[in-house]
């Protein structure tokens, strides 16, 4: 029996599908691309219930309506009546991150299909946060022109404090796209490393063949069950945080203070 080498990073490896090795091409199909498409299919399937448009909704349609109302409330309450036109993007970020997080946490590996958590790649989360940031910039300068820079100046403060605060506000504004994309990436990255490490402990504990090893394996199994539940919660919270912050940032651009 070969000693199991713990390689918690292996799960984040992008592997080519239909090719022998990775090449730097946009048309390279990978396991990451495959699971993005699975996320797309799942999102479309979940929301497809909303196309039934029954007067009395069934469970499927009710689910689609609950999700829609939830995100509609977020945009309306955060941005105001003008928030409706940003709902599609807030919806897209929330549903993509939620579905990617949850699908990545599913134990499909039991059936041999190793799920790839696309949100554990900062290339994905940062691309999304840069898109949110781009929307903020476009909306801000489109609506307010150069007046948009007044966002960095606190209202009603003395001039000395304004001079002091404005650069800090400006830097914190520029940090937004990084912090926004960092959050879901780090949460998924850390969570999956933890699950991988403790999953390996189970295997090694069982392989040890001793009573102590079995005990440790059982302990780790219980821990992993709890962690998986927590991971689902974290996945939902990260999707919610990303969508909510996107709405809050857009509100800054839409309404300036």
């Amino acid at each position: 029996m070969a000693a199991t080498k713990i390689d918690p990073m292996h799960q984040f490896q992008i592997a080519p599908i239909g090719a022998d090795e990775l090449v730097a091409s946009p048309f390279q199909f990978t396991n990451s691309a495959l699971w993005m498409l699975i996320v797309l299919v799942v999102v479309v399937m979940v929301m497809w219930g909303g196309t039934r448009r029954e007067l009395v909704p069934g469970r499927w349609q009710a689910l689609a309506e609950i999700i829609t109302n939830f995100l509609g409330d977020i945009t309306r309450q955060t941005i105001g009546a003008n928030g409706r036109k940003y709902l599609p993007w807030v919806f897209t970020t929330f549903m993509f991150i939620l579905a990617a997080n949850w699908i990545g946490a599913m134990p499909f590996a039991l059936a041999g299909a190793h799920p790839f958590t696309v949100t554990s790649q900062f290339s994905v989360t940062w691309t999304m946060s840069v898109m949110s940031f781009a929307i903020v910039l476009v909306v801000g300068f489109w609506k307010h022109g150069l007046h948009f820079f007044s966002l960095f100046v606190p209202k009603g403060a003395p001039l000395a404090i304004k001079m002091f605060i404005a650069p800090i506000e400006f830097v914190s504004f520029l940090v937004r796209p990084f912090s926004l994309g960092l959050r879901p990436f780090v949460a998924m990255f850390a969570g999956h490393i933890l699950l991988e490490v403790f999953g390996n402990f189970i295997v090694q504990g069982l392989n040890a063949g001793s009573a102590a090893g079995g005990f440790i394996a059982a302990l780790c199994f219980v821990f992993i069950v709890g962690m998986s539940g927590l991971e689902l919660l974290i996945g939902a919270i990260q999707a919610y945080v990303f969508a909510l912050l996107t709405a809050i940032y857009i509100n800054d651009a839409e309404n300036l203070h």
């Binding site: 992008i14 990775l22 090449v23 730097a24 091409s25 946009p26 048309f27 390279q28 199909f29 990978t30 990451s32 691309a33 993005m36 498409l37 696309v118 790649q121 290339s123 994905v124 691309t127 999304m128």
Partner: peptide
């Protein structure tokens, strides 16, 4: 990153 970023962007 350098190898996959293009396809990551396209598919995303």
């Amino acid at each position: 990153l350098a190898l996959v970023i293009q396809s990551q962007w396209l598919w995303l």
